[in-house]
Amino acid sequence: MRKPKMFSEFFKNNGLLMGGILMFLVSFWIIVLILLPQLSMLDFSFRYNLPPALQGTEADSYTLDNYRYLVFGPEGASDAFNKVDLMVFVRTILAAMAVTVLNLILCYPLAYFLGQSKGGGFIRLLVIMLVIPYWINEILRAFALRIIFGDGGVLNGVMMSLGLIDQPYDFINADIALYAGLGYAYILLMLFPMYNVIESLDRNQIEAARDMGASWVRIHRRIVIPHAKPGIASGMTMVFMLSAGALAAPQVLGGTSSLWFTQLVYQWFNDTLNWQQGAAYAIVLLVASIAIVLGFMKIFKVNMGDIGK
């Protein structure tokens, strides 16, 4: 068994007091702030939505109704399945994947440039310039994008004055604004893990590969990407999870006809005041997201430990 030894090592290295404090803080964070609320959500999701008077009585029993609703819709509905909500669910997952891949494509060259160039001070300045916009809160950034992408927005203005289009293009309803907003919202969470691992790659390895005749494509495929894999996995996980669970960007930038799955959750909690139903929807999203991430990690042979790097 390695685990008990791991713990005793931990206490030996940090001392009993410091080790205790660290253990306490981490367990507090995980148990009180994450695990317990999620467990109560899980509990909610298996219960009926009852008026306060009936809660805790005989009628307050466990049920799968909330989950059944997501799949089959209300009883007696004309469709066999709850097509609307399921479509929203699938679309959310696929769109979050697309946003993740888009971010990866955008960030990889940038992370490589930042990580491998010897710019020093200039690179630090660039990184700071990337970070500063994130001091502005998420809603404001989303509205700023709405202004850029709106009918009378900057983008339409520029494209029309260049004569590329005669009528404003509806970026909002085409969901382009939404994808741009989601991509922009979490792009740094993709960039920084990749930047960190690429920065730790020994330049000599790239030069050695080049010296042996490797093309740039092969150098990236065989040397840089395998080295950067933990960072790529970590960035993709975060961007996917956060995009799938985003609320602000879809609310502000989503088209009239498009719904993000989190908006459904939000409606159940806030508009319908059916927390039980909302909890079931939220749990489905969470479990699906985790399953997808674990599945991809298995396909690309990434270990859980790598993500912590």
């Binding site: 030069e207 050695a208 080049r210 010296d211 042996m212 005749g213 490797a214 093309s215």
Partner: peptide
């Protein structure tokens, strides 16, 4: 360097 008959 990838086209020279040298190895480093």
């Amino acid at each position: 360097p990838n086209k020279r008959p040298t190895a480093l």
